[in-house]
Amino acid sequence: MKTLKYITLFAAISTSLLFVQCKDDDDNVIIQETCTDGIMNGEETGVDCGGPDCEPCGLVLDFSGTYVQEDQMGRPGINTVFGTDGFKDAFNVTVPSQMQAAFQEKFETKLLGLNPGYTSNALGLDAPTFTTVLSNDVLWLAQSGITTYFNGTEILTGRALSDDVIDVSLLLIFGGPMGDENPGLTSDGVPTNDVAFSSSFPYLAGPF
Rank of each mutant, 00 (worst) to 15 (best):
M1D: 10
K2R: 15
K5H: 14
S14T: 12
T15R: 06
T15F: 05
T15D: 02
L18A: 10
D25H: 14
D25P: 00
N28H: 09
T36D: 08
D37A: 09
M40A: 12
E43Q: 13
G51I: 04
D53M: 15
D53N: 15
C54Q: 15
P56C: 08
G65S: 04
T66Q: 12
Y67L: 10
Y67K: 03
G74W: 13
R75Q: 01
P76V: 04
V81Y: 10
G86I: 03
D89G: 00
N92H: 15
A101L: 03
A101D: 09
A102V: 02
Q104P: 06
K106H: 07
E108R: 00
L112C: 05
L112V: 10
G113H: 12
G117D: 12
F130V: 06
S135Q: 01
N136Y: 13
D137T: 00
D137L: 06
W140Q: 12
L141A: 14
Q143V: 05
I146G: 11
Y149V: 00
N151M: 10
E154D: 13
I155H: 13
T157L: 00
S162Y: 08
S162P: 05
D163W: 01
D163V: 00
D167Q: 03
L170T: 01
L172A: 07
I173S: 01
G176H: 02
P177S: 10
P177M: 05
G179A: 06
D180S: 09
N182T: 06
P183M: 09
S187K: 11
S187Y: 06
P191E: 04
N193D: 04
D194F: 08
S198F: 01
L204P: 09
G206C: 05
G206M: 08
P207T: 05
